[in-house]
Design a protein around this nucleic acid. Sequence first.
DNA 1: TGCCAGGCCGGGT
DNA 2: ACCCGGCATGGC
Length: 212
Amino acid sequence: MRGQLLDIYQRLFEHFGPQDWWPGETPFEVCVGAILTQNTSWQNVKKAIDNLKQAELLSVHGLFQMEEALLANLIRPAGYYNIKADRLKAFINFLMHEFRGDLDAMFQTPLEEIRQQLLSIRGIGPETADSILLYAGGLPTFVVDAYTMRALSRHGLIFEDATYEDVRGMFMDNLPPDVQLYNEFHALLVALGKRYCKKPRPLCSDCPLFEK
DNA sequence: TGCCAGGCCGGGT
DNA sequence: ACCCGGCATGGC
């Protein structure tokens, strides 16, 4: 399994090149983006983040102080704006109360412990938690998303009914806890998904995973 | 024009 | 332990 995963990684890397994720300038911006991009295209999320930046409110303090209604209005382009405003507030409140608003302090917590804490926040599920921990915190947790599931199941590497935790475990049990590797690997799987594994129908004829 | 996008929650089986 | 409807905008 380890060999298969590394083989996939190598093929993807050769095909797509380094991805250098996550598109965000600061760890905090990555956290916000991780919540805003739930079931939403990144270009919509970018508009929302730009609104927050222009308002000079893209900070722990800024979001903490802001009225939720105003927050919802600013992030409107990202869709689900009422729910997401609530989720951002829940995350910020957690950060303020547990770590005095200090992201660095949050990331000092042992991985599985802070992961469980994030998962207990309303609006943060496994993918969002892992994205925050890996891409904002630089902690070695593997991010699984819909593209990863689709690609792996189409290529017979996982069962259709595999759960998020199953797939995360498969990567982490078979690869070293290497942040750079996890970062690139997930980003490459998304690049693959966007190009070859879109929803309606597989388009695997020229998928790089089938090349020889 | 309808369908999809880097999910998650809450209520119902 | 699953299954499903709801949440919403912008792009192709």
